[in-house]
């Protein structure tokens, strides 16, 4: 695979797959000196779907994001906005 995947698009893709209102999924990318922060927001009634029971879904998304970022040699942090 020659291209560098976009971490923002990865998070958008995962979130849209999970929620009932995919058109309300928004990911903002804030770039700082120590890497990027991705801020994910979803429709209020979809929040539980991206967080999951005891935060399990949010943890899975972060784990997958870390692996993808590692492969792309990037530093990315995910924040889920409530």
């Amino acid at each position: 695979m020659g291209f560098t995947p976009s971490m923002k698009e990865l998070v958008e893709f995962i979130a849209r797959s999970l929620v009932d209102h995919p058109n309300q999924v928004v990911v903002e990318e804030l770039v700082g000196d120590r890497g990027a922060t991705l801020e994910l927001s979803v429709a209020p009634d979809d929040l539980g779907k991206v967080i999951g029971k005891q935060g399990r879904t949010a943890r899975a998304i972060r784990t997958i994001l870390s692996a993808a970022a590692l492969k792309a040699s990037q530093r990315v942090v995910l924040e889920i906005l409530e």
């Binding site: 695979m1 291209f3 560098t4 995947p5 698009e9 990865l10 893709f13 995962i14 797959s17 997958i64 692996a67 993808a68 492969k71 792309a72």
Partner: peptide, 11 residues
Amino acid sequence: FLADLLRHMGI
């Protein structure tokens, strides 16, 4: 879904 996810992960 898995194929899409892996592609987005660059795999």
